[in-house]
Write a protein that binds this DNA or RNA. Structure first.
Lengths: 169, 169
DNA sequence: ACCGTCATGTAATCGGTTACATGATTCT
DNA sequence: AGAATCATGTAACCGATTACATGACGGT
């Protein structure tokens, strides 16, 4: 626990994932890859630094193995849960995402739209297929609401992108 | 001109904007705000550091006023143009944007979808209206292809977002 | 026993954001 | 002439990406 700072999205990702179940940074890496990473990637090194930071701020408890690998397992504290749910509830006003699409950037700066569009259509189609498969695979189980919704959002976005870029061909 | 590095999107934004016409970092700020900033914002401080960096690497020429404000006006060099067009042409393969939508993140991590959706619908609608107005204002003139296309993309994205979040209400 | 790959972590670098600061203009 | 705002720039901090490094384990 030390000097205050504004928590970042990465902080909340860590808190959110640990809120379900304690784990090591490496576990978190796997959890991110399992779903969240599809629309919000996190470098694995961040998971080490961010867990350490959050622990030093009192949002996580750290439990280190005494033998072998001496892995550090983190679990969320009361304060951590409080910070997380404050963030989840706050800000009904909603910040909007920036688009930040590298393809669009190139078009804006003068690239040939048709060339970019061709590549984008292919890439979005590939990702769309991947996500659709994922959805089929998951729909056999109960899909927790949050991840299910974001997957739908991703699929929706990919479809729209394919349509948009196709219109430029 | 010194040690090599990979140019960043910010680098290409600077190069791209200066390719049309030389200017000071402050001019660039205005140009970004005029259009690009709608989908890819750049902090003004970056425009100072990035121009300086690019100049030291030989991609820009720097011309400093000898009197008054001693403003620095930058113009793109041959090497700069070469780097820019290499980037514009390259990578037909296309990296995809990450969604990185804060609203989606909250939903994934357990926020109440309806609450988030309500805020998102409102915010996206506001931005949509703004962009539609912008489009009307611009369509009186000839809109250069690049910016025109990205504006359409933005409008399209906003419409889809409104629809998506509305479906969760 | 060796090799490759997965697991696990630390260190260094660097771009980006925030904060600070001051010189011109314009308006009242 | 003073206040407010726009123009213009520098400095410090910090999170994020990249690179590096080593331990365990499964297979041949």
């Amino acid at each position: 626990m030390s000097g205050d700072r504004e928590l970042t999205p990465t902080s909340y990702i860590v808190l959110g994932l640990l809120a379900e179940e304690p784990g090591t940074p490496y576990d978190l890496k796997a959890r991110v890859a399992a779903g969240l990473g599809n629309f919000w990637s996190v470098q694995h090194a961040q998971l080490y630094t961010e867990t350490a930071r959050l622990a030093s701020e009192g949002f996580l408890d750290e439990d280190r193995e005494t033998e072998g690998r001496r892995r550090k397992t983190y679990s969320i504290t009361k304060a951590g849960r409080a910070a997380l749910s404050a963030w989840l509830d706050e800000d009904a006003v909603g910040e909007l995402p920036e688009i930040r699409d590298p393809g669009l950037l190139k078009v804006y700066l003068g690239a040939d739209p048709k060339v970019i569009a061709a590549a984008q259509v292919a890439a979005h189609k590939a990702r769309l297929k991947e996500w659709e498969n994922l959805k089929v695979a998951l729909s056999t189980f109960e899909v927790p609401t949050g991840p299910g919704i974001t997957l739908d959002a991703g699929i929706n976005y990919a479809r729209v992108s394919v349509k948009f870029w196709s219109s430029l061909l």
